[in-house]
Write a protein that binds this DNA or RNA. Structure first.
Lengths: 226, 226
DNA sequence: CGTATTTTCGTACATTGTACGATACTCTTT
DNA sequence: AAAGAGTATCGTACAATGTACGAAAATACG
């Protein structure tokens, strides 16, 4: 049966690096990072495994590209306008991107080779800080601080067994029972009196920390400019 | 030649979960996380691969145990004494632990099941904050903030292609040349005027951020207590 | 001793990344 | 249209990995 161009709705749009990387992201989003294998990705794209290697040198390099693509989803801050607004916007945007792709945080660690989107991203933030009046040194400090916080929060959130407001209780209840023995009293306290309360949202923790950092940086700005 | 109890200095101390986990850490420290395979670990321990499975259910559970062991290396803060001193001590200690085991940061992401050392650790920090006078809610905020910062910094540091003061220049110089084209002007500026300066140490960035956060939390404490 | 339990291991298999070379396809030049 | 050159796809095969399964060896205990 050598006919094949009939109605098989298998879309065989031609491959490309772009399509490979986007397919990888989609697969990781859908089935998790562990399910992202060259074989399954090829199948998803309607191709055979070895075909991918025409667009990526190897899996590691592909993951580098994937990370850079995720970075490109993050809104860049502008150097004009209020720096606090701009920095906050990109922080929220980064958090959202890493929420959409929770596996990405893990990836960013192992990859040491930043791609163009990553570099552009870093450059934009530094530009915003410099335009706001921070000295070179202070901009570096602020940048390291903000970045550590954003990625650290993403790490925390990815490790949480729940996501979104009010979904906590379902998962947490049995866990709380486990150490009701009184071995971790303060964890208990936080859990029952804060996290398990209806309406709890991890996003609030994020906003609190971000505000605190921005306020403190704003307070340090005048002295730095002098 | 069926003799074997002679002088072969292969130490065949009996296996144990402890020995397996510590061996795993040692191997990851030495050869990197990718080199940590059940086979190589078994060899390191003078055993055969399948023997390990009497002490760990599978590799994933082993990694959970490894992460918990790394956590146990971090100094716990005390609830007595100045909270800022205590929190700082544990932050520095955590950074050091994650510097000793740079691969651990990546692991912490994927594992969702915290071990006893991890729980004890979290509990101790919350205890210190509560003793300092923070409200439940504020303690949760402060804790999330501090933790995100510490792990985020570890993530950054692990991604850096250098480590320790003054080792930057060697690696960074050629990179800087690469985008000397002027595409990333602010990165250039930071690089040449700050990071590449002799005496640069990433640890200084860490301390700056930690101080800023602690100061801001201290400032928020009185209002929170009221 | 023997017997029961624990600890160690040998073999085997499925899954992964990917090296290597062959095939199919596309485009230019005649 | 034919031929040739390049490009994109793929088939086959191999080494490395986690680990299921059950056998063997070591140990503990009556």
């Amino acid at each position: 049966m050598p006919q094949e161009t009939i109605g098989t709705s298998e879309e065989r749009s031609p491959l490309s690096k772009e399509r490979v990387l986007r397919g990888a992201i989609a697969l990781a989003d859908e089935k998790g990072l562990a399910a992202l294998t060259m074989r399954s990705l090829a199948q998803e794209l309607g191709a055979k495994p070895m075909s991918l290697y025409h667009y990526v040198a190897n899996k590691d390099e592909m993951l580098d590209g994937v990370v850079d693509l995720v970075f490109s989803e993050i809104e860049l801050p502008s150097s004009a306008g209020d720096w606090r607004v701009e920095i906050r916007r990109r922080a929220d945007s980064a958090r959202q991107a890493l929420q959409r792709h929770p596996w990405a945080t893990a990836l960013m660690e192992s990859r040491t080779a930043p791609g163009p989107a990553t570099l552009r991203h870093h450059d934009a933030i530094l530009g915003t800080l410099r335009s706001a009046g921070f000295s070179v040194k202070m901009a570096a400090h602020a940048y390291a601080l903000l970045d550590a916080y954003v990625y650290g929060s993403a790490l925390q959130e990815a490790a949480l067994p729940f996501s979104g407001p009010d979904t906590v209780a379902i998962v947490a209840e049995p866990i709380v029972q486990l150490f009701a023995e009184g071995e971790y009293p303060h964890l208990m306290e936080i859990a029952t009196e804060h996290v398990l309360k209806p309406g709890y949202d991890f996003g609030d923790e994020f906003e609190f920390g971000l505000n605190l950092i921005l306020d403190a940086l704003a307070a340090a700005l005048p002295a730095d400019q002098a």
